[in-house]
Write a protein that binds this DNA or RNA. Structure first.
Lengths: 128, 128
DNA sequence: ATAAAGGTTCCAGTAATGGGAAGGTCAAGC
DNA sequence: GCTTGACCTTCCCATTACTGGAACCTTTAT
């Protein structure tokens, strides 16, 4: 299977698939003409990566998850630990963004938003 | 005023202040020895930048906000538009992260997390 | 024969810094 | 006067996870 079809099947851009090969996440075979040749397991692996990335796991997280995935004897506790750490990060990010949202929506609400030069948003950025 | 003091006053790392000069956000004077020389207005501007960045405005947003801030005749509607767009972005990010959190916390809850190799998290990543 | 659609490698750029090298400057202490 | 240490300078490389583009080769269809 050539790269374009893999791209269609996994939803990953061809560029990204090549990049994943570069950094050692997949190792497709090569045909005589130099084209990458993917089989079912490669596609499966890439689809796994696409989903994990979609859930916001970093590339390095994915590397770890892949290793665990391919290790028949892995402990599910290891996977859980990665997922839990990731969950904590997500929750932190959400908290930060919610703080921003609160401040910003206060500011937007306070701003009359017309042609007058008086603007509470800038005032706030000016003086803290 | 030398860069270190400005860094202390604004909370921005010296590196970042130099970078902001590079990209044209501030233009400190230069002393005879080549050192950057900041005055009150520079510090004020940098403090403004620090706050705006702290609220998650991008550098380019900041450039726009700074221009409006320095324009005595600006319309507060312009500022409000930037802030509203940013608010919308933040809300999108929060929504995305909350989806991830929901999925992940389901997965973590479903995973027994012991030494057995059976892991619902990997199963889910495997089959979508 | 030619053109389109695919494939390849490599180089550079993104956002917003951070790290560190190599070297100039300044103030204090001896 | 000299040294030490803290500060300043510029410059280049690294980060994350790709994305775009150039230059070039292969396959397929007309």
């Amino acid at each position: 299977m050539n790269i374009k079809e893999v791209a269609t099947r996994t939803g990953l851009p061809a560029k990204t698939i090549r990049y994943y090969e570069d950094i050692g996440l997949v190792t497709p075979d090569r045909a005589d003409n130099g084209y990458r040749s993917f089989d079912r397991t490669h596609v499966h692996k890439l689809a796994f990566l696409a989903r994990a990335r979609g859930l916001g796991f970093s590339i390095e997280d994915c590397r770890g998850l892949l290793a665990l995935w391919e290790d028949r004897d892995r402990a599910s506790g290891d996977v859980r630990a990665i997922a839990k750490a990731h969950l904590a990060e997500i929750e932190e990010k959400i908290a930060g963004l919610e703080e921003m949202r609160a401040t910003l929506s206060d500011l937007v609400a306070a701003c009359h938003g017309d042609d007058r030069p008086d603007c509470p948003i800038l005032k706030r950025l000016e003086s803290g």
